[in-house]
Write a protein that binds this DNA or RNA. Structure first.
Lengths: 353, 353
DNA sequence: TTGATTAGTTCAATCGATTGAATTTTTTTC
DNA sequence: GAAAAAAATTCAATCGATTGAACTAATCAA
């Protein structure tokens, strides 16, 4: 099939793929001399290099990436595995990873897992198959078995995790201090005179949520508030879950006076219910989200949230990969890069007292 | 640098890259026999094929994608150029393109232009350099010169455009009927007894916005409303522009009684201003957006908008590419696939009359 | 038994660039 | 002007899989 196409192109003389051979012929050199000239080899004269550069332009030469990748044993491709690209957080991380890697001669191959373990395994398999030079990933929420990630390590392919990481894998990790974020939020809410704080969290097998829960519990104790287990509620953190859980919280005899949601989506769902029921925010119920998604500022009141500085996370993840490539001899081990995050206090939790 | 790493791996015997050679040695065959067995060549016996399959599992063999790509002259990579991935629309298109192409053995390389012409040119250059088997793109808003896209065509690389297309390029295009969408919206607003409709549009050199404007004008005439040129306002369609333009519209002596924004973001900005100024929506000002971004339903009132069925756009774009690959002999020409879009009437434009 | 078929493999070239060693060319030195 | 040193280039193997042609067995017909 493809051959027919190639032949067809040849016949029509559309196919003009220039190779170093063409340049060599044109200049009366050998392909190897041309290759060395292109790679700025010290043993090639300036005159020749200049001539080759000229010919490159003349013949509109583009090096065949595949052949050089094959020969050099590296593809200059980096796999990027993310749960979803449709949040501002991931979009921003991706944008920054892409920018930095592009600048360093790498291209990014994207794979979305849609939070599915199966899709994640497939993606890893494919990326390894394509011979990527490294993989940067944020683990799907479904994933509890890290066998496939271990396979990446075994193959000697650099692996960097961000946001959703896993200590046991003992690889580079870039993220924020989730434990501390919970502490910040609780501290802030306590200062706003809240005393019964509910926490809508994600799946507790995920490390980041585990940490947020831990931080939440410890902070309550620090401020001498009772830890009520039934105020810590697991969810998928989507809008619907936020609505559902908020509604159920409101039905309790003893309502909480503040809600800390581990995502802006959940916070948004909660806020919608509060507004619909005419409950005053933040007076009757203070609300804090997580992630600083753009929509957190479009509601009235604007939603207080944690700014994760997604751009920095992307940058650091890309840099961690480049560092790994530069120093392959370094032993791969758990290397956590914890970035600052900041609490953005907005009207959903700002009681004027 | 990389060689050192390779040597290092060899020394540590981590490097276990099995090649067809290894399989050949194990089974007492030649590499070519193994290759043919793997590719289900008719002249290889079933027995041998079975043995090879067994060995593949035994040795944990993964074919070297680079070498086969080099030999076959195709990379199984498809370039995907989008302005931004941070809207629901593009995220959804990408998700569906990826799903379909993956299923057909292709991998997707993503490039974001951030609406920049320069970045777009770079992306095209890189993708061609990587020898992608095709490019699926949505043109950046800055782009007015299509030279680089022509280069794709010249190289014989299949090109499919979606959403932001260009007739002159004469390639496959997948999109919706923008002209008709404007007509739908005007018709709806007229039926809600609106008579002075403003239109916040995008950069008018972009074909889709040109079409929406044309549809808007024609619809006004059809309904015998005057076309007031100063009610058609160009913008970058972001929230801020929506706010700014809405504010200026409100300052006019003769206010419009409806606004049709060519993006949900612009509609959102407009709505914020309206709510802040206490103007009743839709009674005093009806509002319609475009794109059905998820946030269009989180405000009160919910924003009426156009559902572009982004999933279908993605699917069709991927299929158009596959079709092109399957029939390379077909002459490349303008081939428009226009999908249905639907007006979602919500409270921002639903006057109870 | 010989010649013709067919099945099953192997051979050898190829894709295009890279690279260390070898060779040729040029320059320097005595 | 010959020998030595330095510079520039060529040689040839390589990366790993693919593929048409060639070759060897085994099977069949006459």
């Amino acid at each position: 099939m493809f051959n027919r196409w190639n032949k067809c192109r040849k016949k029509l003389e559309i196919k003009k793929k220039t190779t170093i051979k063409d340049i060599a012929t044109l200049l009366g050199l050998t392909p190897s001399a041309v290759s060395k000239a292109l790679n700025d080899h010290p043993r090639i004269s300036q005159k020749t290099k200049a001539a080759v550069q000229e010919a490159v332009i003349q013949l509109n030469y583009q090096p065949n990436y595949l052949s050089s990748a094959l020969r050099k044993g590296k593809s200059n491709l980096v796999g990027l595995i993310v749960p979803r690209i449709n949040t501002h957080f991931y979009a921003s991380v991706i944008e920054n990873i892409e920018a930095i890697l592009n600048k360093n001669g790498y291209n990014v191959i994207m794979a979305q897992t849609n939070e599915s373990y199966k899709k994640e395994c497939q993606s890893i398999y494919t990326l390894l198959n394509i011979q990527v030079d490294g993989i940067i990933a944020s683990i799907a929420s479904e994933t509890v078995d890290f066998e496939f990630y271990r396979k990446i390590k075994q193959k000697g392919v650099p692996l960097v995790l961000f946001d959703r990481g896993e200590n046991d894998l003992e690889v580079d990790y870039v993220g924020i201090d989730d434990y501390n974020c919970s502490q910040l939020i609780v501290e802030h809410l306590v200062q706003q005179n809240c005393s019964r704080i509910a926490h809508i969290t994600g799946f507790s097998h995920t490390r980041i949520f585990k940490n947020r829960i831990r931080g939440f519990r410890d902070a309550l104790q620090k401020w001498e508030l009772p830890v009520e287990e039934d105020l810590i509620i697991e969810s998928n953190l989507q809008i619907e879950d936020g609505r559902r859980i908020m509604a159920s919280l409101l039905n309790r005899k003893q309502r909480p006076d503040a809600v800390y949601a581990a995502s802006d989506n959940a916070a948004l769902g909660a806020l919608q219910v509060l507004l619909e029921k005419g409950i005053k925010v933040p007076e009757e119920m203070a609300l804090v989200g997580f992630g600083n998604e753009p929509f957190s500022t479009i509601m009235k009141p604007e939603i207080s949230t944690i700014n994760q500085f997604s751009a920095d996370i992307g940058k650091e993840a890309a840099l961690a990969f480049l560092e790994r490539i530069k120093h392959p001899e370094k032993k791969v081990m758990l290397n956590k890069i914890i970035l600052d995050a900041a609490l953005l206090v907005r009207n959903s939790s700002k009681r004027g007292n």
